[in-house]
Amino acid sequence: MESSFSLAAFLGQFLVGLSRAMILFIVASGLSFILGVLRVPNVAHGSLYMIGAFAAHAIATALGNHPAGFWAAMVGAPLIVGGISLAAERLLFRHLYEREHLMLLLFTFGLALILGDLTKMTWGADYRSIVPPPFLQGSLDVLGTALPRYNLFLLLVGPAVAVALWLVSAKTRFGKIARAAAVDREMVGAIGIHVSWVFAWAFVLGCMLAGLGGALVSPTISVTLGMDHTIIIEAFLIVTIGGLGNIWGALVGSLLFGVTQSLGVLVLPQFAIVFPYLAVVLILTFKPTGLLRSVW
């Protein structure tokens, strides 16, 4: 037991936790963005993450596992997910914006049920995995610890997504309109902006992040049905402890979640997954609105 507390093990687990946190962040930030603008907890988010992973696998396989196939998958999978969410939003979801939030939530649940089974129909229940390009395979030796290159790659992608999302939401015209529409959609509509389309793009952007998360996770785990069910709970927890709708809150929440879980493995392997949940309970007990300021 003592030997597992060595520096190498600690560093290794820490990195695993950080890279897991990056995946969680990408998914949770999409959820948080939708929560911030549309005020709807998107239950279908997990299904879109799963579809992203399956689509990434399909694209990579179609290109014969060529290194370029990996990059095509990373771009193509979020686009496919974006297309699905745009269709769902324009055909159905937009007619419900005037209704109670409970109905919006139940709609996204219906969508999750449908998308889950459609994934099963399309891709079946097999386990799949995709291969990253050669330069992301293997590991780097840092301080005597072998750090997998792909995990280091995730550590670059996560912050890049955070900054990009922050730029979109804080600096672009679209982001400003979206934030304004979240606060007072009638006023925004009154000055001649198509609020319905603003909501649509906000929804699609959030969902594409779920797809991207799914695509990025696909080389690290086996892609299979049911991967939608736990990620959505984790993403919900993360946005709640981070402060609903706050992108940076999602980042803090993801780091807390990923790192407590991976370091928990060193202490109590069987209960590792319980640690982040306990952290959530502690945070919500003392700060029910989350660590950072909610946009609500």
Partner: peptide, 14 residues
């Protein structure tokens, strides 16, 4: 409302 619901999902999931 929604905050209530989100916190409950979190605690129930524990």
């Amino acid at each position: 409302k929604l905050y209530f619901g989100m916190i409950q999902i979190s605690l129930g999931s524990l």
